[in-house]
Design a protein around this nucleic acid. Structure first.
Lengths: 235, 235
DNA sequence: TGCATTTTATTTGTCGACAAGATTTCGACG
DNA sequence: CGTCGAAATCTTGTCGACAAATAAAATGCA
């Protein structure tokens, strides 16, 4: 089996166990290390992380609350599958959250928020320059989360974060094969425009830019899915 | 203390324990039986429900994920306080969800959805006729949740449900004193109008009606809060 | 050989217990 | 009398174990 018992984790602080397991399983799910539909055995994970089943279970309950895993009663827990039937609903919600969080940021942002946003944009640009696709995905997420946090609406921020993470899974599924072909530089330009509009507190412009940005991302994902479909038909 | 050890619950099915505790603590939090800020002692709850601490803890983790309780590391778990500083954000998100769920329902609803929505509306009207304020709050929530479910966007539905439940807490806090003075019948008329607009698939009308409906509810809550403030100042 | 049924085995849901961390109580000292 | 510090108490976080429920394997039968 692929049990890789990490030997270097004897020192753990009390109370950090469940959180660490949560973050680990969360990242492994989002990064497709644990592919959708894969069963998560509690005992197996407990042995892998040299920890009891209790923190494992707590992490799984949390992940189930976020919809990342599905706990089947009295049966195994599995990584949630990507529901392609509800993909339109996903795009719809994602686009809406892009818009409202950017608008809210334009309304409420402080100079400290702008500093954080610009810092994220720099990191994103660096990832683009390095051609590091997975890092680009994460940094793009962080950039927009920073904008959402500047909007100071935790309801929007939480849903938006969840949607961006869900998108991270989808991109992981499709982005790799066609990465070299696409130039991600337009995203940098769009980000800069969004930053300027937020700072100028131009709500209408923010709404339009966010909508365009979202539509472009949605179209790109849809295109990748369609291309993937064609490839499968060709086989 | 007010420990009321329920004597009539010896028969429990395996796997239902955690869910039952979750639903119980959830309802008690939303109904203000557990007021905001109240600490939730795991051992105390375990004794009260004649159950181990493990399912209690699982329920608390789930509730913490929904923001209903706050788990302080190595300290007690408390019922989340109502954050009046973010009340504007709450109203903002609530209004938006009213709009988008009603619009989505207009787009996607089936005849079975309409039956369910009308059934909820009948129950709501019955609660209004009976003058049962807490039941009205719950039935109003169920009515709009049914509309949201007809929209078939689980992201919207989940956030909307959470917001409506949060509103249930706020209404529980303010609605009782001033209930007799207000006539809730306009809500019935507005609901009927929304039903008609959804069935006619008139997106623009749905959006307008939902916005008006939300604005009216928001204004009513704000009025109750303002009245409450005045009363406190008068003392 | 194929299908139904019993038996085994694995995995979860729950339990009681123990230790770390925090809070409170109590006592010493200025 | 008030303040600081130490002991006691309490609560949580984690652990190992057991039983119910399911899944898998083995057995019997047509």
């Amino acid at each position: 089996m692929s049990d890789t018992p990490d030997p270097a984790l004897p020192e753990r602080r009390r109370g950090s166990g469940a959180r660490m397991v949560y973050e680990l399983l969360r990242d492994e799910s989002l990064d497709m290390v644990l592919p959708p539909g894969a069963p998560i055995d509690e005992i197996q994970q407990a042995e892998r992380l040299s920890i009891s089943r209790t923190p494992i279970r707590e992490a799984l309950v949390r992940l189930a609350g976020e919809g990342l895993v599905t706990m089947l009663p009295n049966r195994s827990t599995v990584v949630s599958t990507i529901d392609f039937a509800n993909l339109n609903a996903f795009f719809d919600a994602l686009t809406l959250m892009y818009r409202v969080t950017t608008r809210a940021a334009a309304e409420c942002h402080t100079s400290a928020d702008m500093d954080r946003i610009r810092a994220r944009q720099r990191v994103f640009a660096a990832a683009v320059a390095a051609g590091d696709a997975p890092r680009m995905i994460v940094c793009n997420r962080d950039f927009h989360v920073a904008i959402a946090e500047a909007g100071r609406n935790p309801y929007y921020t939480q849903l938006f974060t969840r949607l961006l993470d869900e998108g991270r899974r989808i991109l992981r599924l499709y982005y790799y094969p066609s990465f070299e072909a696409r130039l991600p530089h337009p995203y940098i330009v769009e980000h800069e425009a969004i930053i300027a509009a937020v700072e100028a507190r131009d709500l209408a412009l923010c709404d339009r830019l966010a909508r365009d940005h979202a539509d472009q991302i949605v179209r790109q994902i849809q295109g990748m899915i369609a291309q993937d479909r064609r490839q499968h038909i060709d086989l």
